[in-house]
C-alpha cells in the first residue's frame, strides 16, 4: 500500500495543473471571456498541434533550446572560473567582487543595446545576453559556497599537511558543491528568462518570436502555447540538471530525504 503511494508521488505534481486546466476549459467553453482574448486549453493544444504538424515547432524549439544551452554554458563557465577564484583567494575577492557585485545591479535589458551594437543583431548578442543572465546566480552561489565551507573541515586538511591547492580540491570544492548546484539551477532559470528577452527584442525564429508573432497577429492561443512550452522546457531542463547533479550530492544528510 505504502509502496504504491510512494510510486505515485511524482504524479502529484500533475494534480494541480490538471485541475486548473479542467476548470479553465469548463468555464471558457461557455465563453465567459471572449475566446480571442482567452482561448480554451484545448485550442492552445490544437495550436501546438498545428505547429508541430508543419514541422515549424521543432525549428522554434530547437533554436530556443540551442540559444539557452550556449548562453547557459558560456555564462556558467565564466561564473565558475571567477566564482572559484574569488571564493578561494582573498586578494582576488577584494579585486573582483565589488566590480561584479555592482554589475549585477544593472537591469538585464540595459545590456541589450550595447550587445546589439557590439555583436550585431544575430546570434552572438542573444547568447551574450543569456550568458549574462546565467552568470550571476552561478557566480554568487559558488563564491559564497566556497566562503561558507566549515572551518572545522578545512582544519582537518591543514593537519593532514595539505597545501592550498589540495585544500581547494579535496575539501573546498566538494563541500561547496551543493551551493554550486543551487547556483546552476538559478542560472539555468535565468537563462530561460533572458532567452525570452533576447527573442522578443528581435528574432525570426524561436519561442520568443512566437510570442511576438501572436501579439502582432492577435492570436492569444499562440502566445499561450509559447508560454506553456517555456514552462515545460524550463521544468524539464531543471529536472535534467537535478538528475545529473544528484549523483554527486547523495552524501548530503538532508532533512528532506528523511522519510519522517
Amino acid at each position: 500500500m505504502k509502496r504504491l503511494s510512494q510510486r505515485l508521488r511524482p504524479a502529484r505534481a500533475f494534480v494541480l495543473p490538471f485541475l486548473i486546466l479542467l476548470i479553465w476549459q469548463l468555464v471558457q467553453a461557455r465563453e465567459v471571456v471572449p475566446t480571442n482574448l482567452l482561448p480554451t486549453p484545448v485550442s492552445v493544444l490544437e495550436t501546438i498541434g498545428t505547429l508541430a504538424s508543419t514541422g515549424e515547432l521543432t525549428e522554434h524549439l530547437a533554436i530556443t533550446c540551442w540559444r539557452v544551452v550556449q548562453g547557459f554554458l558560456l555564462g556558467a563557465a565564466v561564473a565558475t572560473l571567477l566564482g572559484a577564484i574569488t571564493g578561494v583567494s582573498r586578494s582576488a575577492r577584494d579585486l573582483l567582487d565589488p566590480l561584479l557585485q555592482s554589475l549585477r545591479n544593472i537591469p538585464s535589458l540595459a545590456w541589450v543595446p550595447l550587445f546589439i551594437l557590439w555583436l550585431g543583431i544575430y546570434e552572438p548578442s542573444k547568447v551574450a545576453l543569456i550568458a549574462t543572465g546565467a552568470f550571476f546566480p552561478v557566480y554568487l552561489s559558488l563564491a559564497q559556497g566556497l566562503l561558507d565551507v566549515d572551518r572545522k573541515l578545512v582544519e582537518v586538511g591543514r593537519m593532514a599537511g595539505f597545501d592550498r591547492f589540495q585544500l581547494v580540491r579535496r575539501i573546498l570544492i566538494p563541500a561547496a558543491l551543493p551551493a554550486y548546484v543551487t547556483g546552476l539551477r538559478g542560472g539555468l532559470g535565468l537563462a530561460w528568462m533572458f532567452v525570452v528577452a533576447a527573442e522578443v527584442m528581435g528574432a525570426s525564429k524561436g519561442l520568443g518570436f512566437l510570442l511576438v508573432d501572436g501579439q502582432q497577429t492577435g492570436r492569444a492561443a499562440l502566445i499561450l502555447a509559447s508560454i506553456l512550452l517555456f514552462a515545460v522546457l524550463g521544468k524539464l531542463s531543471d529536472l535534467l540538471l537535478c538528475l545529473l547533479s544528484s549523483r554527486f550530492l547523495q552524501w548530503q544528510d538532508s532533512h528532506s530525504l528523511q522519510p519522517a
Binding site: K152, E155, V156, P174, A175, D253
Partner: peptide, 19 residues
C-alpha cells in the same frame, strides 16, 4: 578533534585514508 569532523561526501574508508 572534539568533534568527528568527517568529510560527509567521503565513505568511511576514504575518510580514514584522508591525507
Amino acid at each position: 578533534f572534539q568533534e568527528p569532523r568527517l568529510m560527509p561526501w567521503l565513505s568511511v574508508d576514504d575518510n580514514v585514508a584522508f591525507g
